[in-house]
Computed example of a mutant assay.
Amino acid sequence: MSTFPEATKGTSTYLRIIARGLVLALMLQLLSACSALRLAYGQGASLAYWWIDGYADLNEVQTVQMRRDIDGFFAWHRGTELPYYITRLQQWQQLATAESSTDLVCAQFDVLRAAYLRVIDRSLEPMARLAMTMTSAQLQHLQRKYAKNNQEFERDYIRVSAEERIDHLMGKALDRYEPVYGNLNDTQLKLLRERIRQSPFDAVRVNAERLRRQADLIRTLRELQADRTTTVATATTALRRWHDRVMQSPIPGFAAYSDGLVRNGCEQFAAIHNTTTPEQRAHAVQVLRGYETDLRAVAAPY
């Protein structure tokens, strides 16, 4: 149910992208249609592989190992994480019928962040195995992929007027709210636009952090590539330290800024939710119940 500003997602880089790929069928936002969620999870291993391949351009040997690792990941995820998500969906159905608050929304965000960190922790060793075998050509492929993503970020958030940026953020927000609540009314749309207008989101600052993370990862991967004594354990540690710097930027003040963005997103969600009609809340309960049903069907054979 997360509806935090697109800016918080825009800071994701390689390992976070990998993690999203590994749980592409689920995603923490759970915003696909119920039938699509069931289908997507069933195809999750293939979708995850193609997602990763798009960044790493895997060779034949890497492909065999990655498919094995992805299968292992999904076996763990079905058995360990799906029951957790099902329980949360039941709780969210209850929350959807009542008034909300900033603190309550942020508590749910913390729940999702903890789930994300468990996914990262499970993904580190497979990614370390891949990192140890990446070639210079593959690192160049990754950099080209980054460059394309960076151009898209600049196009959407930097090389635009303030109103165009708000329009883009508004569209992204609606893509997250309306699958849950149904169409927002004029009052809600006006409130959402005003909330976005007041957001502390700074595209230039966010982009600088994105570029820092990308450069940090490329440097980490090159060091692993150059060190012939690297083991899976030391490579895993190197990636863990890199991800620690993702979660807690070494740039002075950025961690506080990021926390402020999250808090602002919590305020936005609570404000919009508290304007929803009984019909919209009933719609949200129905959607969340559908997600629960789908995840139960996916997990049932296991």
Score class of each variant (00 low, 15 high):
Leu184Thr: 08
Phe254Ala: 00
Ile251Arg: 14
Gly260Thr: 08
Thr236Glu: 13
Leu221Phe: 01
Ile272Gln: 06
Arg228Asp: 06
Pro250Met: 04
Gln268Phe: 00
Leu189Gly: 11
Ala162His: 15
Arg210Cys: 01
Thr230Gln: 13
Phe153Gln: 02
Arg263Gly: 01
His273Cys: 10
Thr229Pro: 09
Gly265Asp: 01
Arg213Ile: 13
Ala238Leu: 10
Pro200Trp: 05
Glu209Val: 01
His168Glu: 13
Arg263Phe: 03
Val160Phe: 01
Leu261Asp: 02
Thr187Tyr: 04
Val262Thr: 04
Lys172Val: 10
Ala226Ser: 11
Asp167Thr: 06
Arg159Cys: 07
Ala162Arg: 15
Asn183Arg: 15
Ile272Pro: 03
Gln225Glu: 11
Arg155Gln: 03
Gln214Pro: 05
Gly253Tyr: 02
Lys148Ser: 02
Gln268Tyr: 02
Tyr177Gly: 03
Thr276Ile: 13
Val246Gly: 07
Glu223Ala: 10
Asn185Ala: 12
Leu191Trp: 01
Asn207Ile: 05
Ile158His: 08
Thr220Glu: 01
Pro252Tyr: 03
Arg222Ser: 15
His168Gly: 10
Asp244Phe: 14
Gln268Ser: 14
His168Val: 09
Val262Gln: 01
Leu224Gly: 05
Glu178Met: 07
Asp202Lys: 01
Gly265Phe: 00
Gly171Pro: 04
Val246Asn: 09
Ala238Cys: 03
Arg263Ser: 03
Ile196Gly: 08
Gln214Asp: 12
Leu192Ile: 09
Lys172Gln: 09
Met247Gln: 15
Ala233Pro: 02
Ala173Tyr: 09
Leu189Trp: 13
Glu209Tyr: 12
Phe153Ser: 03
Ala235His: 00
Asn185Phe: 05
Ala256Pro: 00
Asp186Cys: 07
Arg241Pro: 05
His168Lys: 15
Asp167Cys: 07
Arg165Asn: 08
Asp216Ile: 03
Gln188Glu: 06
Ile196Cys: 05
Ala233Gln: 11
Asn207Glu: 13
Asp227Gly: 04
Phe254Met: 10
Arg210Trp: 00
Arg212Gly: 05
Ile251Thr: 15
Pro179Ser: 00
Ser258Met: 11
Lys145His: 13
Arg197Asp: 10
Phe201Ala: 15
Ile272Thr: 12
Leu174Asn: 03
Asp227Met: 05
Tyr146Trp: 08
Ala147Tyr: 11
Val206Gln: 12
Ala215Arg: 04
Ile196Leu: 14
Arg228Tyr: 02
Asp175Gln: 15
Asp216Thr: 08
Ala270Pro: 08
Leu211Arg: 09
Leu192Ala: 02
Gln151Pro: 00
Ala255Val: 06
Gln248Val: 13
Leu169Arg: 14
Asn183Val: 14
Asn264Cys: 08
